[in-house]
């Protein structure tokens, strides 16, 4: 079993040095050290993983934040690799969902190596782990036998696998192992009656159309794609190392 550790760009800042030393020492203690690559303007994640595959790595561990983890999803999903994450602080929502504690404490979880297969969502050919969102009142979502569309202005139309990154005002956390995604449509200016203004429709595949020419879908708060497009589930697409405190 060989590990590739990818440090995201922003970790080159001095304030992360002591935290990174602790992580590196703990990995050595646990006997799971591996090749370390620090990303910079000249080295992107995709190239690093491709090089790792040539060197027979089996597990890619990303050290960073939620945006770092979301970036790696699209690279890992197409390969037969296991993903591990080490969040550098306790703000990572993905880490909480996966039951991974912050900084050097995450090394214990990596060493225990509990691997779960989780679903991913797909917008066109682009994978997402959390959600894809459109803020547009002229959106139509076409299911097999019916269509759903917001009937008033200022609606968020969100396709969810987890729902930790989106700006939706709902308590639901969706299950990323249930083989389906959830469409959530919520009126942004109705906070007091959130339950009555929130639509939740489970699906496996839909097509999305927008009447407004400038509309786009924001994927995991990183990438933007233009409709029309399809949104569908990619079941059990990602192998990820999780902790016992995971939320699914």
């Amino acid at each position: 079993m060989s590990y590739l550790y990818i440090y995201d760009n922003f970790l080159s800042a001095k304030k992360y040095q002591s935290s990174l030393y602790k992580i590196e020492n703990r990995l050595v203690d646990l006997g799971i050290k591996g090749k370390v690559v620090r990303l910079n303007v000249l080295k992107n994640m995709n190239e690093v993983v491709e090089d790792g595959i040539k060197a027979d790595i089996t597990t890619v561990v990303v050290i960073g934040d939620d945006l770092s983890f979301s970036k790696i999803i699209n690279i890992i999903a197409k390969k037969d690799l296991v993903l591990g994450i080490i969040p550098v602080n306790n703000k990572s929502k993905f880490a909480k969902i996966l039951g991974v504690p912050p900084a050097h404490q995450a090394c214990e979880i990596l060493a225990q190596r509990i691997i779960k297969e989780v679903d991913l969502g797909m917008v066109g050919h682009y994978y997402f782990i959390d959600s894809a969102t459109i803020t547009n009142e002229e959106t139509t979502v076409k299911f097999g036998s019916y269509n759903a569309s917001p009937s008033s202005k200022q609606n968020i139309v969100s396709f969810n696998n987890l729902n930790v990154l989106s700006e939706l005002n709902i308590d639901n956390k969706f299950n990323p192992t249930d083989g389906q995604l959830e469409l959530v449509i919520q009126n942004t200016d109705v906070l007091l009656t959130k339950n009555k203004s929130t639509t939740i429709l489970p699906f496996t595949k839909v097509s999305v159309e927008c009447q407004q020419p400038g509309a786009f879908i924001v994927i995991d708060q990183i990438t933007k794609l233009k409709p029309p497009t399809t949104v569908q589930i990619a079941p059990n697409k990602l192998k990820v190392i999780v902790g016992a405190q995971r939320m699914f």
Partner: peptide
């Protein structure tokens, strides 16, 4: 599991 909220129209 399935909720059609006040601000949504479903046809079909």
């Amino acid at each position: 599991d399935t909720v059609i909220g006040a601000s949504v129209k479903v046809e079909g």
